[in-house]
Design a binder for these strands. Structure first.
Lengths: 258, 258
DNA sequence: GATTTCAGTGAACATATGTGCACTATGAAG
DNA sequence: CTTCATAGTGCACATATGTTCACTGAAATC
């Protein structure tokens, strides 16, 4: 506190409020009308005022989305942890203080992103599982589904792989917990075809596969073109095949290490 | 506080350990053998005034170490990317501007940490490879070596796993490149015992194993006690066994996917 | 039509950050 | 000894950040 410098020339200024006419200020804000793709395409653009779209809650959730998307976008320049509230609000087209209408702090925004991204991951599992009985022959189709999902939600998956190990403790634990859940879910699936295996072995198999899936997602997120993507998928397919091949030879009862 | 007048605690008057190798001019230092904060026995009566310890270069490299260690320490509260130059210098016990005597910016500090940490990883590979011929029966010993290395240099390995996917683009690429190198090295090793395999299959096996090693390191870094560590090792051993089991059944020539 | 609610605004501020500059102290070199 | 090089100091400053507070305008409710 030694600096008695009376910083930032601060004349009384408080009486200044009346001077600025709020009219003249820039009309540059208002990002509300457009931005994200508008789902409902019903005609009547002109007269009918679609209360639905000017709805209060609707508007709010649109801004919320803008905040989430802004964070996701910024995510390849900055890591989430070093991303500032002001950056995000600027990119979302609102003023910093309006942020608090939606999240208590950046950490809460992060958790919302975790939830969304894990939702995507979970959808992926469901999709991959649908109609698949023989796992050994379902590797490639499943990986193609994975490829599609990462393609469709690149920012979400990038968020996941970036913050899974690198983020704040809160984020890491949240993501870790969800991935563990994901693995358990997979284990239940795997157990169906391996009734004789002890659950611990099943769980470890599931963990291995999840590890490989995460690694594949990491590689897909960093893949720049279709060729790179295809190579990633091909490599992952071989590795999965090898693992499932090993699983057929695995003898649960007797420990394999001497 | 910023105690302006009084010099802050000066950690530098403790005569520390005698230097060993820092003679090698410039280039890369191999700091792997020691960690910080030890030193103990060097009471060193004042009569022998070794220029060695008051050496200019020696002092400088000691401060440099302090900066690196400060960054490594701070790493479990903040991710490296959101770590400020001022934080690091404060923890290292120097004034912010003195930072520039050692690194141009935080990014350069980060790259130095990558180099160090990868050095540790490489040492690990060498150690694990020493005297191992039959891979299938060397899994547990190798994993115990891994456990020991992560125990001895927890901060370096934590840095690696945190920044590998989560750090800045520069850091990510640096670490990614080194890990790729690491995998190639392992592939050469694996090829020795699998002469009939095509190199692409070998490389994919090596990549898989490296993926598992990285995942194991991640788990070890997060393990809180010995029991947790042992469980991680046991799980990793099972998984490795399964993979190498699969590798024995793998038929390189014919594609496994129908 | 009048009142309430509330998402978004804009000014203010205390604090933190990176970095430039002049300086000091001390080891190295002549 | 004198002179030079340089690690580390202290101060300054411009800028960025999180958060507060009083406000505004329009949708929601009465």
């Amino acid at each position: 506190m030694s600096s008695s410098s009376t910083p930032r020339a601060r004349p009384d200024d408080k009486a200044r409020r009346a001077s600025k006419s709020s009219r003249s200020s820039g009309a540059r804000s208002r990002p509300t009308s457009d931005s994200i793709a508008n789902g409902a395409e019903s005609g009547r653009p002109s007269r009918d005022r679609r209360a639905d779209e000017n709805n209060r809650a609707e508007r709010k959730s649109r801004t919320r989305r803008a905040l989430l998307d802004a964070a996701l976008d910024r995510l390849d320049s900055d890591s989430f942890g070093s991303m500032s509230l002001r950056e995000v609000t600027k990119q979302a087209g609102i003023v910093p203080t309006a942020f608090y209408r939606h999240f208590r702090d950046m950490d809460e925004l992060g958790l919302a992103l975790v939830e969304e991204s894990i939702g995507a991951l979970h959808d992926l599992l469901v999709a991959a599982r649908a109609g698949v009985t023989d796992r050994t022959h379902a590797i490639h189709p499943s990986l193609e589904i994975l490829r599609g999902y990462v393609r469709d939600r690149p920012t979400h998956f990038r968020f996941l792989v970036r913050e899974r190990a690198g983020g704040s403790a809160t984020l890491r634990h949240a993501i870790g917990r969800e991935i563990k859940l994901f693995a358990t879910e997979l284990a239940v699936d795997l157990a169906r075809e391996r009734a004789t295996w002890p659950t611990s072995d099943i769980q470890r198999l599931a963990d291995l596969i999840v590890t490989m899936i995460v690694a594949t997602i990491e590689a897909l997120v960093d893949a720049t073109d279709d060729t790179a993507e295809s190579q990633v998928i091909a490599a992952a397919a071989d590795q999965m095949t090898l693992v499932l091949l090993g699983a057929t030879v695995w003898q649960p009862e007797r420990r394999h290490r001497p």
